[in-house]
Simulated assay, not measured.
Amino acid sequence: MRGTTSPRRAPAVLALGLAAALTGCGAGGDTRPPHAPAGLTAQAGSATSVHVMWRAPDAADGVSGYQVFQGGRLVRELPADKTMTDITGLAPRTAYTFSVRAEDAAGNRSPLSAPAEVTTPDARAEDRLAPTAPAAADGRAEGPHAVRLSWDAAADDTSVTAYDVYQAGVRVHTAPGTDRATTVTGLQPGTAYVFTVRARDGSDNSSPDGPPVAVTTPADPGRAPHTAPGSFTATASPGAVELTWTAPDTGRATSEYQLYVNDLPVTVIQFGAGAVPRGRASYRLTTAEPAGTAWTLKLRARLPDGNWGAFSEERRILLPG
Rank of each mutant, 00 (worst) to 15 (best):
R2Q: 14
R2K: 10
S6D: 15
R8D: 14
R8I: 15
V13I: 10
T23K: 04
T23F: 01
G26I: 03
D30G: 07
D30W: 08
T31L: 11
P37T: 11
A38M: 01
Q43P: 09
Q43K: 00
T48F: 04
S49R: 15
H51R: 14
H51L: 11
V52L: 09
M53Q: 15
A59K: 08
A59T: 04
A60S: 15
G62P: 09
V63R: 09
F69T: 02
G71N: 08
L74N: 13
L78T: 07
D81A: 10
K82P: 11
T83P: 04
S99E: 12
D104M: 07
A105N: 09
A106S: 14
A106L: 12
G107T: 02
G107H: 09
A114G: 09
V118G: 05
R124A: 13
D127E: 02
D127G: 05
P131R: 03
A133R: 05
A135W: 06
A135H: 13
R140Y: 13
P144N: 05
H145S: 12
W151P: 01
A153D: 08
A155F: 01
S159E: 13
V160F: 08
A168D: 13
A168L: 09
V170A: 09
V170F: 06
A175L: 13
G177P: 08
A181H: 14
G186V: 00
G186C: 05
Q188R: 14
P189A: 05
A192R: 11
V197S: 01
D201K: 03
G202M: 06
D204R: 15
S206Q: 13
S207E: 00
A219Q: 07
A219I: 05
G222F: 00
A224H: 01
A224I: 03
P229W: 11
G230V: 04
G230F: 08
F232M: 09
A234H: 01
A236Y: 03
P238I: 12
G239F: 06
G239V: 04
L243I: 06
P248R: 01
T250F: 03
L259D: 04
L259G: 06
Q270K: 15
Q270Y: 05
Q270S: 10
G274R: 12
A275I: 04
V276I: 14
V276G: 05
P277V: 05
R278Y: 11
G279C: 01
G279S: 12
R280V: 03
Y283L: 06
L285M: 15
A291T: 09
T296K: 07
T296I: 04
L299R: 12
D305I: 04
W308F: 02
S312N: 05
L319S: 02
